[in-house]
């Protein structure tokens, strides 16, 4: 039951991520991306990670993609206004893609199936357990990542603030 559900959701994830790439209209791309993130939320629920699921839901679907959509709506991209890419750029893109493909194939050849990770605590994803682990075992990485986010925020504010002085 859970396995067939997983395959269905996994198929939907891949299907909608492909639509993100292949749709011509950038706003449609973002809408497909929203659905893709929604399928990720279902994946987390299937893994019994309720907190991660709902945070993914709030942060990615509810905040980040709203901002993406916001910016794209303001840009109002059309087929006419889309800049034409030169042939050189296209060739460079193809070469870059090929390099990535070769690397991926090479790495999968080198890969051998290790022991699958077995979840020790079944309820690790619940809020209480997750909080305890974050604030005891992984306290340092947790705090460092918060400093990283803070510095990113300060940097963004700094970049936004510089404009009125120059104008």
């Amino acid at each position: 039951m859970t396995l067939s559900l997983f395959y269905l959701v996994a198929f939907l994830s891949i299907f909608f991520s492909l639509l993100v790439i292949f749709s011509k209209n950038p706003v449609h791309s973002i809408l497909y991306l929203i659905i893709t993130f929604f399928t990720f939320t279902i994946h987390y629920i299937l893994l019994n990670a309720q907190f991660l699921a709902i945070v993914n839901f709030i942060v990615y679907m509810g905040a980040i993609l709203v901002l993406f959509l916001f910016v794209l709506m303001l840009l109002n991209l059309n087929k006419d206004s889309e800049p034409l890419k030169s042939n050189l750029l296209k060739i460079i893109g193809v070469i870059g893609g090929m390099c990535l493909l070769v690397t991926l194939v090479g790495s999968t050849k080198a890969l051998h199936l290790s022991d699958p990770v077995i979840l020790q605590a079944q309820n690790l994803g619940l809020v209480k357990n997750l909080g305890k682990v974050l604030f005891s075992e992984f306290l340092l990485p947790f705090e460092v990542s918060s400093i990283l986010l803070l510095s990113a925020m300060v940097g963004a504010v700094l970049l936004a603030k510089r404009e009125p002085n120059n104008a």
Partner: peptide
């Protein structure tokens, strides 16, 4: 009674803006 009840409400609230945004666009 999911154990992240408040966050669920919060998620639904944050999703509510899509209806307005998509319709407006």
């Amino acid at each position: 009674d999911i154990n992240v009840g408040i966050l669920y409400i919060f998620g639904v609230v944050s999703l509510g803006v899509y209806g307005v945004m998509i319709g407006g666009w």
